[in-house]
Design a protein around this nucleic acid. Structure first.
Lengths: 90, 90
DNA sequence: ACAATATTTAGACTGTTATCTAAACATCTC
DNA sequence: GAGATGTTTAGATAACAGTCTAAATATTGT
């Protein structure tokens, strides 16, 4: 369960996607334009992120809008801080 | 630079190693005993963790003692919390 | 210096993953 | 319903990562 999370975060393209979404929701196409790779490849990455629960997707007509699932990040941050640095505060 | 970090965290064996080290320093051999894989494989994982700056190694006679580098975890936790959930608090 | 123990490195093998193109599916407009 | 646009899925390929065995390196003790 935690495995999917860390594995999803391991790819730089996916982290960039997440950073873009942190600035505001975007559609799949808007996200794909930001990368030099094929739309299908970005779609694949979005699938991984969705599967990890890091993002949520919602169809809006022809488009699919993606948004960050912020609570999951809080969980990871808490896990890292607590388990490895002995405190919640960072 | 951040790439090495997240990539290192992506493997479950390496996270287990880190969790063991969180409970106290250990030598390479002591760590290797905890896993069903070859010593050489654990050594490889330790190399990845060292390279990512997540652990530090120090020779003690025949043994090599590993310890957690806690500050790096605080950095990651802070990055995650700040970038993706809009706050330091977790 | 030699043997024993602890650890790392090298090279090969295998499974996984990121990428591509092409095709399929979904939605909107005419 | 046909065509246009947006997105995902399928199948293939190539690079990467984890594992193994065998060999190399480092340290200690005799």
């Amino acid at each position: 369960m935690r495995d999917h999370l860390f594995r999803a975060l391991a790819d730089p393209t996916r982290r960039k996607i997440l950073e873009l979404l942190a600035a505001g929701d975007r559609t799949a196409g808007e996200l794909a334009e930001e990368f030099p790779i094929a739309f299908a490849s970005v779609s694949h990455h979005l699938g991984v992120l969705r599967n990890a629960g890091l993002v949520a997707a919602e169809r809006e007509g022809q488009h699919v809008r993606y948004r960050l699932n912020t609570t999951v990040f809080q969980d990871i941050a808490r896990y890292l801080a607590k388990t490895f640095s002995g405190g919640t505060d960072a």
